[in-house]
């Protein structure tokens, strides 16, 4: 059993708790079993991407670029004769699968949500770190965490019953009447279901994650930055805006991007308050919209009835587009957060 003597100072000593590495042979079975688990984790994302790509391929050929540029979503005449053929793929006559409305809705609602959420989350995080007495901090953090745990569908329920009527009866008429001269704020006040309500719900939903991340970034920063600035005679607000915030810029950008990624992929709450628009781009901030995530849920039943199957595959193509966008946003966010970690 001499081989079990711990190697101190060697390369293994850097690893925290590695009983097996000192005697690889005796850990073989455990090593094989757990490596299978790790393999599943590793292959899951790759498998998902490849399978969706394979399944979507006919739709990619049928739709070409129009999945991103066309505003008409039409599964075609299911009772007609003949078929509509693009690039050798046949769908029902008149079938068009344009996803521009959903892509625009996804991006606009998530961006508008950020416009609402970023200043609020910054304010909340700064208050927690610099203004809240110690004994209030723990309960406040617990409440913020509680907020993050509320399911999407409950936000959707609250949105449907509380928020949407308020927007439809008060906010939208007021804004379109008094601020209608500003582009995108005038015109039809709508019913309350739409871009504005979706953005508000999304903002509330992503705020807890953003607050938690910004708070942790602020707390990880040495207190001396704030104190040095105060000692030089600046006010506490100047210390925060001129000394602390510039030093955590990348971390905050990362937090915003993570929240943005969440907002892009959010389904149920948006589905319930966004107004389920189809074949029309939003005219103003209160117009009904649709997002990729929401349309996958709301259009699947109709897509299943498409005998050619291209409608279902086109929905999968939209899901794939959402997948790729989320992947890109999250990658940039991770790079930003890692950059922040390295800077201190």
């Amino acid at each position: 059993m001499a081989s079990l003597t711990p190697t101190v100072g060697g390369s293994r000593a850097r690893r925290a708790a590695v009983p097996f590495s000192q005697s690889p042979a005796s850990g073989t079975l455990a090593g094989v079993l757990t490596s299978i688990a790790a393999g599943i984790c590793l292959l899951l994302v790759v498998l998902m991407l490849l399978f969706l790509l394979w399944y979507t391929w006919p739709a990619i050929r049928y739709n070409g670029l129009s999945i991103l540029s066309d505003i008409t979503w039409n599964i075609g005449n299911q009772y007609g004769t003949g078929s509509s053929i693009h690039n050798g793929v046949a769908a029902e006559p008149g079938a068009e699968f344009g996803g521009l409305v959903f892509l625009v809705g996804t991006l606009l609602s998530a961006l508008l949500a950020m416009v609402f959420a970023v200043p609020l989350a910054l304010g909340v995080a700064l208050t927690i770190v610099y203004r809240l007495p110690e004994r209030l901090r723990l309960p406040t953090n617990a409440l913020i965490e509680l907020m993050a745990g509320i399911p999407s569908v409950v936000y959707g329920l609250w949105g449907t019953i509380v928020l949407v009527p308020w927007v439809g009866n008060h906010v939208a008429p007021f804004v379109t009447h008094h601020f209608g001269f500003i582009p995108f704020l005038g015109g039809d006040a709508g019913s309350g279901n739409g871009l504005f309500a979706a953005a508000i719900v999304l903002a509330i939903m992503v705020m807890p994650i953003m607050v938690a991340t910004v708070r942790d970034v602020l707390l990880a920063q040495p207190k001396s930055i704030y104190e040095a600035s105060m000692a030089l005679g600046s006010t506490s607000w100047q210390a925060v805006t001129h000394a602390v915030l510039p030093s955590v810029r990348t971390g905050i950008v990362g937090a915003i991007l993570v929240a943005f990624g969440r907002a892009l992929g959010e389904t149920m709450a948006v589905l319930m308050v966004a107004g389920n628009a189809i074949n029309i781009l939003p005219q103003n901030i209160f117009s009904p919209i649709n997002t990729i995530a929401a349309v996958v849920v709301s259009q699947l039943e109709s897509a299943v009835s498409d005998a050619s199957g291209v409608a279902q595959r086109s929905l999968a193509e939209l899901a794939l587009v959402l997948f790729v966008i989320s992947l890109a946003v999250n990658t940039i966010a991770r790079v930003a957060i890692r950059g922040q970690d390295r800077s201190h």
Binding site: C41, L44, V45, G265, A319, L322, S326, L327, N330
Partner: peptide
Amino acid sequence: LSIDVLFGVPSIVVGYF
């Protein structure tokens, strides 16, 4: 890294897959 990526996959994409 692959777990980090999985964190960012929207749940509807998992469902549709």
